[in-house]
Design a protein around this nucleic acid. Structure first.
Lengths: 216, 216, 216, 216
DNA sequence: TATGAATGAGAGTTCATTCAT
DNA sequence: GATGAATGAACTCTCATTCAT
């Protein structure tokens, strides 16, 4: 029930760009708290301290609003990672810095991460967006592995590489998700652990060691 | 007058036990297709070929229905895995069989998997259920690693082990998710790949090789 | 949700007359507990230890069932009162015995009374039934007053009498209602108090004393 | 093209305060017509000439809406009575004016009265509200009696007084209910009759005359 | 620019009632 | 005589979305 509240208007007539960021912040918060469907435009507007029609005027439909959140968070994350893993570093350095940036981002933007990882996934309209981002990540990781591999004069089928990369990305996502739910966990430590699993496991593969299923 | 005779008579008045399974099947299908919120009880009832009130009479609320699905699918999956990874086998054998069972299950019950992995996760009321299952898996995997480790006279802090196990489980889940979306992919092959990453990576760790973050 | 319960059937294949009374008992209980609308045929059948179709077979529609309850309780109450207030007694004796019987009935059949007084009243389909019963009571009371009056050689317009009688009946109903809600109250005492108000007030009127509104 | 001009434009976009009153009016009408359970929010919205969501937005749940009606009508009635029966008048004057105000209110707000008297009573969630109002009335009446009594140097046990007051209030309610169902009845006349019963009956009691049950 | 007022459409849930066995 | 299985129809409540000011 709508109860009348005499609210002291905090800031009015803000320039559009700022209002939009406020709204996106609120939307990310609410989507992360409730999930896409359970989130209501009312709550988002409230949380942004603004009236519903403004949200529609600036960011459009609920779906469009979610996509906008997705875009912003995706961009932020990819930027953070790309900025850290400079392509001219040696492979292990790149991987390490990438992981550190990734877990750093998750730790600093837990809400954004939940939106990205938990809401977008599985909801048909947004899965594509997410898949694209993951594909880019997988590509980058596969590239690193391939590079390191060639440096040692070895070569592995592309599919093979991709699955390994996919598994590494998946493991990182899971650990990231775990991090998002544990406010006290340290991103840096988590990154180190992931690096251990990733680099050593991959390293073996790259070194030519392979496990093969038994005959039966 | 033309009387239609339906060659396949839609069976009516079925005993409860059967109807319940039909409903759960339908529910799993619809939840996997739409997600929890977007799924409507109407669609589930329709898909089960029965009227809505029966669903409520037998399986209760939408939430309770979802939990029932969750239970059934979780149980099925854990059974499949536990049945395959007999505890008296050597660690690598257990891991391998467990993974094969896991990917086999995902391949055979893609809908069930989506419900488990994509819907339950992140939706507050169900996350706990899921987390419990994952915890059991992580525990089992950590146990395997620990066992293998001790066999070689080595030891690793429990937390360390758990994070590694968590990463392996996470990677498997991601690969499972990927499998669920690629109808043509072969579960066995996916299992093999995962085994490679897991066993080799873990093997290194167990062998005492460790990666350390650089000074800066 | 319908949960399967393996119930040990208490008595089966009872003769119709008994089953009907069981059902009416259950119905009165449930209607009194929940009110007409909030009561569900399911709960009534359950409370009677019988399946729903039997209720329909024996007592018909929910509305018909309620009317049946109404009839039975009304008849019981009128019987109790009529049996006590023999027409050959002096007026004050009749009034006193009638009141005692009335409050005795309410005290002994609190559920029945609630059905009568709280549910039937105001619900269009049943109000008539109730109004009829009240009319009979009012008639009896008015008759008593008239009789006593004539014995003293006085006379009062019929309308006048009826309103007084109506007020007395109303007061008794209210006190009855109060009694139904206070399990520890003593019916006899309540009857005495009502008798005081009724007999003295009426007595004055009958004695020719009248209160008149002031000029303004 | 024929453009219709509605001479009485159905005003739209009314301010909240007005709409709320319109809704309450409609709700009282419908609740009185159908009873709480049988009334549907659809019908109430229709009757108010507005869409359902507005009702929910302004007045909340069906239950809350009913309570709001209850509050408004209770307040109105108590105000009418309290305003009439000024405490500095002699007891009989107060009683008379109170009764006149009461029956005047019932005559003028028949719908409101039905809601108060017939729906709220017996429905668990609202009975308390009603009981509170009745308790206040009973208290006031008992106070009047006590006052008049002491003026004559007499005294009666509190419980005794309360039951008498309760009976008087009950009688008035019943007469009020009768009035609500008889559009042609005159409130003033009904008040006079009630006053007769009340004042004379109470007067006797106050004068020390008492009726006692016979030995048997 | 900004918002209170307003609604169409639909979801979950329950219930009286009836078959078919 | 007795019941488990089954449903059409309502009803409460919510939400994304849009006017009109």
């Amino acid at each position: 029930m709508l109860t009348r509240v005499s609210s002291t208007p905090t800031f009015k007539r803000l320039p559009r760009a700022i209002r939009e960021q406020q709204m996106l912040d609120a939307a990310v918060r609410v989507f992360s708290r409730r999930g896409f469907h359970a989130a209501s435009m009312d709550e988002i507007a409230d949380d942004a301290g603004i009236s519903k029609p403004m949200v529609y005027a600036y960011l459009g439909t609920k779906e469009e609003l979610f996509v906008a959140c997705l875009h912003r968070e995706t961009a932020r994350m990819m930027e953070a990672i790309a900025g850290a893993a400079a392509p001219d570093l040696p492979a292990d350095q790149r991987l390490w810095r990438g992981l550190r940036a990734f877990f750093g981002f998750v730790g600093a933007h837990r809400d954004g991460w939940k939106v990205l990882y938990r809401q977008a996934r599985g909801s048909q309209p947004f899965a594509a967006e997410l898949a694209a981002m993951r594909a880019r990540l997988v590509g980058v990781v596969a590239g690193m592995l391939d590079h390191a591999l060639r440096a040692e004069g070895r070569e592995v089928a592309e599919t093979e590489l991709e699955v390994v990369a996919y598994a590494l990305v998946g493991a990182s996502e899971s650990l990231g998700d775990w991090l998002a739910d544990h406010p006290d966990a340290e991103p840096e430590k988590t990154a180190t652990r992931m690096m251990n699993v990733a680099w050593l496991g991959a390293g073996q593969l790259l070194g030519g060691v392979t496990w093969r299923p038994p005959a039966n």
